[in-house]
Every structure is written in structure tokens, then in C-alpha cells.
């Protein structure tokens, strides 16, 4: 195993074992369950909303929220625990450390959100037909990767600003709206469409919906999901360099 992979996996394990669960329980279980229950109860008998689309939408909303609040705060967590300086003083790649922690955090979020929705749908006796399970799994994995990369980007951003919590609070719902999870993207004003295209969640949701309904995958969904995720990665790497240089320049490694 290469040194970078070793660091990646060791960091992932440390993240899984040290992450506080309370926030995740609220964001990963309570919030999606309540969201789903309210939506199911509010749905009229003539509603056209498919239960599968509803379940997937709430899964993605839950996963994205958890990504912002869990993965996004990975670096802040290191800073508050005072471990950022000892980690940074080691020769290991901080990128591998952060990637391992982001991956672990995202997977852990998914392990809370997805079973919550499945159980909620079973309890409410809503049928969730999935026409193309293989495509659904592929799309779900792609959404997870994209969420982890977005989490890395947010994590670097949160270390650079004191307004991290405000940004996290403010960022969630605009992204859900632009991603087409709250209202169909077609209902958004035309000028907002280009903005929603740069939200990888938008393309991930398209893929998940198509897989569940067994409809044709929009031709640009996979390339756009890959492109937006790659763009987040590039931006995260750039921001990461800036973050490291800035905390070393300003002497804020141990501040929180």
C-alpha cells in the first residue's frame, strides 16, 4: 500500500471513530424522517408525486445537508481539537488526510440517511419501485463521491472564514432549490438554469430519478456530474493550498 493510501485509510478510520454522532442523528435521521413524514401527510390523494422520487429527493437532501454539516466541518473539527498543527507538522500529505476524513464522513452520513428513508417508506407502506437498481446504485455512488468532494471544498472554505456556520445554514436550501430537489428545475426562472447546472446535485438527482423510474438518462447528466465534481475538486485543491498558506501566515492553526 502506498503511503498516501495508508494515510487515507488511517484518516478515514480516525474520522469514523472520533466524529460526534448527535449532529448526524439530527441531520441524518430526525430531519429526513420528519421531512418525509410531513411530505407524505401533506400529499393529496390526487398527487402526481411518485413515492420513489420523493424518497430519493429526501435522501439526497439529507445526504447533502449531512455533507455540509459533517464533512464541511472536518477541518474545523481538527482545529478545535488542536490536532491540525500536529497533523500539519508531519510529512504525510494533508490532502490524503483530508480526503480520507471527507470520504469517511460522507459514507457515514449515507449510512444514516439511506436506511432512515428506507425504513420510513416501509413503515408508511409506500411502494418504492426501482426500475433499474444497478443504475440506481451507480448513480448513488457517484452522488456520494460528488458529495465528498463538495465537502472537501466546503471544509477548506470554512477554515478560511469565521462565518462558517452562517454559510452552512445559508447554503443548504439554495442548493436544494437549484438542484431541483424542492421544486422541479423547469419551474425555476430561465436565468437560474445556468446556475443550477453548476450544482452537481442537480445532475445526481436527474440520474437517480431516471434510474428509479426506468426512464432514459439525460445525455448530459453523467458528463455534467463528472465535470462539476471535477471542478469542485480543482477548486478544493486550490482553496486547500490557500487555506494552508493562510493559517501558516496568520498563525491561526490553533485558533477556533
Amino acid at each position: 500500500m502506498t503511503a498516501a493510501l495508508r494515510v487515507f485509510f488511517a484518516s478515514a478510520v480516525v474520522q469514523l471513530r472520533t466524529q460526534r454522532s448527535l449532529v448526524l442523528v439530527i441531520i441524518g435521521i430526525v430531519q429526513p424522517a420528519v421531512f418525509l413524514a410531513v411530505t407524505l401527510l401533506a400529499r393529496g390523494p390526487a398527487s402526481q408525486v411518485q413515492p420513489a422520487a420523493l424518497a430519493l429527493g429526501i435522501c439526497v437532501v439529507g445526504l447533502w445537508g449531512a455533507t455540509i454539516w459533517q464533512t464541511g466541518f472536518v477541518l474545523r473539527g481538527e482545529q478545535s481539537e488542536g490536532t491540525l498543527a500536529p497533523v500539519l507538522s508531519r510529512p504525510a500529505s494533508l490532502g490524503a488526510v483530508l480526503a480520507g476524513k471527507a470520504a469517511a464522513s460522507t459514507i457515514r452520513s449515507a449510512l444514516f440517511v439511506v436506511p432512515t428513508i428506507v425504513v420510513a417508506m416501509l413503515v408508511s407502506r409506500e411502494p418504492v419501485p426501482v426500475k433499474d437498481p444497478l443504475a440506481l446504485v451507480a448513480a448513488a455512488l457517484a452522488v456520494l463521491v460528488s458529495a465528498a468532494v463538495f465537502g472537501l471544498l466546503v471544509s477548506c472554505l470554512f477554515v478560511l472564514t469565521r462565518a462558517a456556520y452562517r454559510i452552512a445554514e445559508a447554503a443548504a436550501y439554495p442548493v436544494f432549490i437549484l438542484g431541483g430537489l424542492v421544486v422541479p428545475p423547469s419551474l425555476l426562472p430561465d436565468w437560474l438554469h445556468p446556475i443550477s447546472w453548476i450544482v452537481s446535485l442537480h445532475w445526481g438527482a436527474e440520474l437517480l430519478r431516471a434510474a428509479a423510474a426506468g426512464t432514459a438518462v439525460p445525455a448530459n447528466a453523467w458528463p455534467m456530474l463528472a465535470a462539476t465534481t471535477a471542478a469542485y475538486g480543482v477548486l478544493a485543491a486550490w482553496l486547500f493550498e490557500r487555506m494552508v498558506n493562510r493559517v501558516r501566515r496568520d498563525g491561526t492553526l490553533e485558533l477556533y
Binding site: 480516525v14 481539537e81 498543527a85
Partner: peptide, 9 residues
């Protein structure tokens, strides 16, 4: 110092 380790580990 008092910090610098993962307290739960």
C-alpha cells in the same frame, strides 16, 4: 499542552 490529540481515541 492539553490539546493536540484525538480525545476519544
Amino acid at each position: 499542552g492539553e490539546r493536540g490529540f484525538y480525545g476519544r481515541l
